[in-house]
Design a protein around this nucleic acid. Structure first.
Length: 869
RNA sequence: GCGGGCGUGGUGAAACUGGUAGACACAAGGGACUUAAAAUCCCUCGGCUAUGCCGUACGGGUUCGAUUCCCGUCGCCCGCACCA
């Protein structure tokens, strides 16, 4: 018996040091080879990596190592999304500085990542909380301010009462803060905004160019941007004493239904509503009621449509002499369109609900195909589909689209209050990106507020505006604002006393350009454009789908902004995007209903039945459903423990096998053990192979049939695994490597001829290279054991002999009436007539034909034969 | 409600433009080696009324042939959700 068991605990640190010393993964910007940029979403330095990281970084590492082997100059960096609230919470709990906590975490996590053996260029490491990084962000903020891409405006904001900060709309999930989970309140605050909405159209259109993105993510962004084309339309008010306002402007995407209008609706927050409510206590009460519902009852099913008749009336814009009531309605949003609508109940469900409740008219104006115009009516369900316009005078008979065009022209030519009555307008749901956060641990917004000169950017020569070190977190709110001296400055322009901006930037700003900084991480400017342009866009970006909207949309915006400022010359940051699935695990509960960690239990199997009990107490434990690993359910497995027990390669291999990478993968003890066994099998295979042939592969006897068959499998595997890695189908790459391993093991056990032995040696070498992106340490050990030159990390991906990919002999299944009955083996390219002749002489076929002629024979050359009887 | 995705053995899954359904792995069962265990190796492994028949959620359709395409139903997952 040859060799000892492979010992990853010994071998893995050894190879990591070898790579380190050889600077194997340090990437030069001057390398003339074709660049390839692979990036995984950088982690928040929480202190420990979790299995999700292991999966994410294993995938990225396979891609990086594969493309290195393919001769590309690969950029594969790592950094830290290091600003953010948890550091402040930790500061409060542990009485440490957020920076101290953060940098300690970074060190701990870096050690963990290094133990995974990732092919990362650590010389490019970035922490977004370091002034070396955020000074450039401040500098770009000033550029953006000057370029008109930043505004400061008072607006209603989502206020998180627990985190005591403002949240972007995207950060409010089901009315709750995305991090704290607290019910979000509305407050009026002056905030800094990036004008992402200026780019709405471009961000939407360019989605079509992102062909290497998941369709799902593109759809989500498309919906988020929420483009809608419609008409701004003025309704003239009947003169009234209640207000001086003479017209109401609404936004509609269905101006074609104007003949069916039966009311005009205002948002409870519409200025006219507010004005009317000032002298109408009932209306004021109605508005207050709407507000109570708006914020508190997110969980309730669709709130009932409620309206309040203001008593005002508007002139029907196309029906002479008719007027329509003006309602305030609870379902009309102030921050979309104009905050006012016209209601056409027959063709909008919400309008119909309101109309039925208050007895307003319901007049259909779109006739469904095939319906009778005399009898068609709308009951409880609005008709929202296609049809032709009727009951609409000069629009009668038109399609919806034609009617929209015609009515837009009609209103465009008329005037109300000296303005055009109708203006075609495109609306977007996407709002500007509010970046102000009332927090200490973030990038300071480099602005001062001078009593004389107003709001001024800090001169670039004075950057960075550094966070003060001596801060306390004994009061809720912004520690930066509480600092005794930091915010008091003198105006650089006039010398008057001034106040520093104490808001810091949303941490999504930090992550909106870090991939660019990686291309020149030590440059004195935010980017070195020539270098950035060479690397960008990122060829393959890999991360969680939870960032489908926020991070990815912001990054797309930021790249455009950086392009406008001359920092880069690309618009899209990520050419290829891959969103990996989560890591799940079974859950366990004690009798008393408490979650129990997998390490505390023992599973017993009795045939198919599985039971669990507590290791320490022996109490029975119930096995629950498979869920995403989470601390709250205690179904987490610590990567450190896995690496210590099985080694990094085993963890990496298991994370890549079995489940397609975009799908969730279930972590199981049995699965890890299988991966670990496979590692030993490879080691044994290589050991036994070198016992047969100690010298590197030379040419193989091409005449030997056994050797040829083996070489076919070897070359097909090299080809197949390459294709699977390029397509990110890691599970299939793994399966092919298993198949190759099985074939080599079998050949080895068959007292191989010299020719087969030579092929085996070739197979062992190539298998080692195929393994190296996934199990890099084991691969180095095998490579060195075989006495190969240099490191397998530097080895080229094997060439494939195309002649070995095609079989001369093909097996064709023979179907009778679509069911497989036999198969024949023929030379590749055998003509259909010849195949037909062979098939008809088959015993299985003649038996069923019983001398009769078949109705039809379908021959797909080299694939299949189907005899129809 | 709207949009998207998915339903394949005991389990994770594979099947390229419609062409041998279940590759590969896990679990399970049987055997070999061993004083014994671990490790390793070999065999079996979709179902059934088994020379055959059925089987890719269910019901139809197109086709010589459907896991794959089309229509309908059911179930699960994800995203958006009063956006006029």
């Amino acid at each position: 018996m040859s060799g000892e068991r492979y010992n990853p605990r010994e071998s893995e640190p050894k190879w990591q040091k070898v790579w380190d010393d050889a600077k194997s993964f340090v990437t030069s910007n001057d390398d003339p080879r074709e660049p390839y940029y692979v990036l995984e979403m950088f982690p928040y330095p929480s202190g420990r990596i979790h299995m999700g990281h292991v999966r994410n970084y294993s995938m990225g590492d396979v891609v990086a190592r594969y493309h290195r082997a393919r001769g590309r100059n690969v950029l594969h960096p790592m950094g830290w999304d290091a600003f953010g609230l948890p550091a402040e919470n930790a500061a409060i709990e542990r009485k440490t500085h957020p920076g101290t906590w953060t940098y300690q975490n970074i060190e701990a996590m870096k050690a963990q990542l290094k133990s995974m053996g990732l092919a990362i260029d650590w010389t490019r490491e970035i922490a977004t909380c370091s002034p070396e990084y955020y000074q450039h962000q401040q500098s770009m903020f000033i550029d953006m301010l000057e370029a008109g891409l930043v505004t400061r405006k008072s607006s209603k904001v989502n206020w998180d009462p627990v985190d005591m900060t403002v949240l972007a709309n995207e950060q409010v999930i089901d009315g709750k803060g995305w991090r704290s989970g607290a019910v979000v309140e509305q407050r009026e605050l002056t905030q800094w905004f990036f004008k992402i909405s200026d780019f709405a159209e471009d961000l939407l259109e360019a989605l079509d160019t992102l062909t290497e993105w998941p369709e799902k993510v593109r759809t989500m962004q498309r919906n988020w941007i929420g483009k809608s084309e419609g008409l701004r339309l003025l309704f003239e008010l009947e003169p009234t004493e209640k207000t001086d306002v003479t017209s109401i402007e609404v936004f509609t995407t269905r101006p074609d239904t104007i003949f069916g209008a039966s009311f005009v609706g205002l948002s409870p927050d519409h200025p006219l509503t507010t004005a009317l409510a000032a002298s109408n206590a009932d209306l004021a009460e109605f508005v207050a009621e709407c507000h109570r519902h708006g914020t508190a009852t997110e969980t309730l099913e669709k709130a009932e449509k409620q309206g309040f008749d203001t008593g005002l009336r508007v002139k029907h814009p196309v029906i002479e002499g008719q007027t329509l009531p003006v309602y305030v309605a609870n379902f009309i949003l102030m921050d979309y369109g104009t905050g006012a609508i016209f209601g056409c109940p027959a063709h909008d469900q919400r309008d119909l609900d309101l109309a039925r409740k208050y007895g307003l008219s319901v007049k259909p104006v779109v006739l469904p195909p095939g319906a009778d115009p005399e009898t068609f009516s709308v009951a409880d369900e609005a008709y929202v589909d296609a049809g032709n316009i009727f009951n609409s005078a000069f629009l009668d008979g038109l399609s919806i689209d034609d009617a929209k065009r015609k009515i837009a022209e009609y209103f465009g030519a008329r005037q109300v209050d000296g303005k055009s009555q109708g203006t075609v307008e495109t609306n977007y749901r996407l709002r500007d990106w509010g970046i102000s956060r009332q927090r200490y641990w973030g990038c300071p917004i480099p602005v001062i507020h001078c009593e004389v000169c107003g709001t001024l950017p800090v001169p670039k020569k004075d950057l960075p505006v550094k966070l003060p070190e001596d801060v306390t977190f004994d009061k809720p709110g912004n520690a930066l604002d509480h600092h005794p001296t930091w915010k008091h400055v003198h105006c650089h322009q006039c010398g008057a006393s001034a106040r520093r901006e104490t808001d810091t930037m949303d941490t999504f700003v930090d992550s909106s350009w870090y991939y660019t900084r990686f291309t020149a991480p030590h440059a004195e400017t935010p980017t070195v454009p020539a270098v950035a342009n060479r690397w960008l866009p990122v060829d393959q970006y890999i991360g969680g789908v939870e960032h489908a909207i926020l991070h990815l949309l912001y990054s797309r915006f930021f790249t455009r902004a950086m392009k406008a400022m001359g920092h880069v010359d690309v618009s899209e940051p990520f050419k290829g995007l891959f969103t990996q699935g989560m890591v799940t695990h079974e859950t366990y509960k004690s009798q008393s209903g408490e979650w129990v960690n997998p390490t505390e239990i023992a599973i017993e199997t009795n045939g198919e039945a599985r039971t669990a009990k507590h290791i320490r107490t022996g109490d029975p434990i119930s096995i629950g459903s498979v869920e995403k690993m989470s601390k709250s359910k205690k179904n987490v497995v610590d990567p450190d423990e896995i690496v210590a027990t099985y080694g990094a390669d085993t963890a990496r291999w298991f994370m890549l096998s079995d489940s397609p990478p975009e799908r969730d993968v279930q972590w199981t003890e049995a699965g890890v053990e299988g991966a670990s066994r496979f590692q030993q099998r490879i080691w044994r295979l290589v050991n036994e192979t070198i016992e047969l042939t100690a010298s590197p592969a030379a040419s193989v006897d091409v005449q030997d049939a056994g050797a040829l068959a083996l070489r076919r499998i070897i070359h097909r595997s090299v080809h197949g695994v390459a294709g699977d890695i390029e397509g990110l189908r890691f599970n299939r790459a793994v399966a092919q490597i298993y198949e190759l391993t099985n074939a080599l093991t079998k050949a080895l056990a068959s007292s191989p001829s010299p020719a087969v032995t030579a092929a085996l040696r070739e197979g062992a070498e190539k298998l080692t290279i195929l393994l190296s992106p996934m199990m890099p340490h084991l691969a180095e050990s095998c490579w060195s054991l075989m006495g190969m030159h240099g490191l397998v990390a530097d080895a080229s991906w094997p060439d494939v002999d195309p002649a070995l990919l095609v079989d001369n002999e093909v097996t064709m299944p023979v179907q009778i009436n679509g069911k497989r009955r036999a198969e024949i083996s023929v030379a590749k390219g055998t003509p259909a007539a010849e195949v037909e002749r062979l098939v008809l002489s088959l015993e299985e076929v003649t038996r069923i034909l019983e001398g009769k002629a078949p109705k039809k024979i379908v021959v797909v050359p080299d694939r299949i034969v189907n005899v129809v009887v």
